[in-house]
Amino acid sequence: MHTGDWPSTIEDALAVQERLRGRVDLTDDCAELPPTVTGLDVAYGTSDEIAAAVVTLETAGLTVVEERTHRAKAVFPYEPGLFAFRELPPLLAALDQLDHQPDVLVCDGHGLAHPRRFGLACHLGVLTGRPAFGVGKTRFVGTHAAPEASRGSSAPLIDAGEEVGAVLRTQDGVKPVYVSAGHRIDLAHACRLTLALTPRYRLPETTRQADRLSRAALR
């Protein structure tokens, strides 16, 4: 799907989500510890400008392998639950600039933890065919108990009686993050990778690096 035929109305976007969500495959075929991880994030400027950033890190040492950015005007209105339609065009353009195919995509957002079970990580995974999952800073849907205070503790995120993600403590005593599978990876694996990406801070290093790069691209 290219931006030329990108949905421009809420009704069209909902129809696209409905059509594509059946293509989500949560059969886990992602390497247990993939050689690289690619983080994605966007920053918003004035007049609907978006700067997208993708950063690939070596999984073992979390050193930057390559990074790319793309600036563009938003082609879709601001609508909760449909943020992917604003953010995906520049993110896909930035991904296209990478020299190496990502082993797994880590989104600053959600996958199945979405009202229609098709958040950014699902959408990105389906369109690219790559394993993808989301790590959100805040809860979008569902309810949960508080995980224990120690790093690695988690609690199920439940929405309409369905487990759609995990509330994961990445550092002792800090606020948890919200992990959800997107495509070609299961939730337990996504949680293990999230912990591998958070050796010192609450948020994955993929998100931290992509956030830094996207903000710099706006300046």
Rank of each mutant, 00 (worst) to 15 (best):
V177S: 06
G109Q: 03
V126H: 06
R71H: 07
D96L: 09
T3D: 14
A155K: 05
L124R: 02
D99V: 11
V65G: 06
R86S: 03
Q97A: 12
A51P: 02
S150T: 13
L218C: 00
L168E: 00
D96P: 09
R21P: 04
V37K: 13
P115H: 04
V65L: 13
R116E: 09
A121M: 02
L218Q: 00
L213R: 01
T63H: 15
D99S: 14
Y201H: 14
M1Y: 12
R151W: 11
F133P: 08
F133T: 05
E32K: 07
G136P: 03
A146F: 10
E11I: 09
G4F: 15
T3H: 15
S153Q: 10
A149E: 13
A166S: 10
F118C: 09
S8D: 07
G152N: 05
R192Q: 12
S153Y: 06
R116C: 12
R184Q: 01
P80G: 03
D25L: 08
L218N: 00
P35N: 07
L95D: 04
V37D: 11
P204Q: 08
F118D: 04
Y78L: 08
V104Q: 04
V141E: 07
L92G: 00
R116F: 09
V75K: 14
D211K: 02
F83A: 04
A217W: 00
F85A: 07
V16P: 08
L88G: 03
E79G: 13
L195D: 05
R23L: 13
R208L: 13
D96I: 07
G161R: 01
P34N: 01
L127P: 08
R68P: 03
I158V: 11
A113E: 06
E49S: 06
